[in-house]
Amino acid sequence: MFHLGFIINPFAGIGGKVGLKGSDGEAIRAEAFARGAVSQSANRARITLEILKPYKDQLIFFTASGDMGENLLKELGFNYECVYSYQGASTAQDTIEAANKIVAKKANLFLFAGGDGTARNIYEAVGEELPVLGIPAGVKIHSGVYAVTPKAAGLVIEQMLNNELVSLLETSVMDIDEEAFRKGNVRAKKYGEMQVPAEHRYVQSTKSGGKEVEALVVQDIADYVVEQMEDDIHYLIGSGTTCAAVMDSLGLENTLLGIDHVFQQRLVQQDVYEKHILELLDAHPEKVKAVITIIGGQGHIIGRGNQQLSAKVLRQLGRDNLIVIATKTKLQQLNGKPLIVDSDDLALNEEFSGPIKVITGYEDSVLYPVGRI
């Protein structure tokens, strides 16, 4: 039998679609729910576990009660043992204590759904005692312990169950200061390392930091995007420094880690979230485009730092209305790996796969594949 530790952070990622850039702390959670946030981490974990359903007879899970794991495992018919119970809303301390119980059970692998805060909690309990694998469900995903998508996490475990050779690598546990993050400053800190079953298609790199490309190349991209803007189109300018260059070229104030609405080269609204975008799409169908970029070292164009572009938004927006921008250096850093669309809708992820145009300079673009992971 394969013994699998399993924990869900029920609050992971609730701030993403409502523009809060994190979910740490009761006040932020309350604000997220006030804005209409819905917990998504169990749905992300369900995608992973669906891959493992054919292997039910080979698996025993060690988990926590309620929404931290037991409910989903029971729903899907897996064999499990509840090793930790909690009352009320779960906390970071519940994650740590549940993880300690799982470590004591000597699980073969610890699977968890959350963000960088959850990874820190798991690290505090697990260290290097046993291998871990994260299901990406948070707003902040800097740590290298996460699979690139929930489906990919399932595929890694499937390889292990089929006795395929899967390397174990030491990868970094990272987290950032959320208060600084909301002000546009990324201050990532390394907290330690954990062992991760590594398969390069399915497990992400630690996010690249610093200036990756020459400023002139980014400026060329920005100037070209601005030159191509149409007066009757509403533009959603995404997060990241490459998109920030577009706002700089327009002479507009930028939300570095959010999405801004621009019309006729003027700022309409800063830091919009899912609700605002859906209202915009309803009011101006076929007149909205989104400018997005690639996360360095990983390849995500959807699902990392821009959860405001939810599956519901993307279905209305359409693939053809995505303007992807990146330098050739950033593409080369992917070492041939495809770009990734990681929404909460697997069918949509599949529909958005295939070659996509990426603007890489002034009047310079390439076709680059979006994968089916």
Score class of each variant (00 low, 15 high):
K189L: 14
V246N: 02
S65L: 11
G114D: 01
D116A: 06
K21E: 10
D67E: 15
L236H: 05
A180D: 10
H142R: 04
A64P: 02
G66R: 15
V186G: 02
L250Q: 02
V156E: 05
G210C: 07
A92S: 15
N349R: 01
A152I: 06
D364N: 13
I292H: 01
G13W: 00
V358P: 07
Q265A: 11
G138W: 01
V173Y: 04
E26S: 12
A89Y: 12
G138L: 01
D67K: 15
S343I: 05
R182W: 07
L52N: 05
S310W: 05
P197C: 12
G318K: 11
D260R: 01
D220A: 14
T171S: 12
M68E: 07
G25R: 03
L334Y: 05
S365W: 13
V38Y: 08
E274D: 08
K330V: 15
T206V: 15
D260F: 03
V366N: 03
I221T: 08
H261Q: 11
Q298T: 09
G5L: 03
L4S: 07
I135A: 00
A104E: 15
G209M: 13
L49H: 02
G25D: 04
E31S: 12
I47Q: 11
M1E: 11
G117V: 09
D342E: 11
D345Y: 08
I28R: 10
D232G: 11
E179W: 06
L309Y: 04
L322W: 10
V217A: 14
L109G: 06
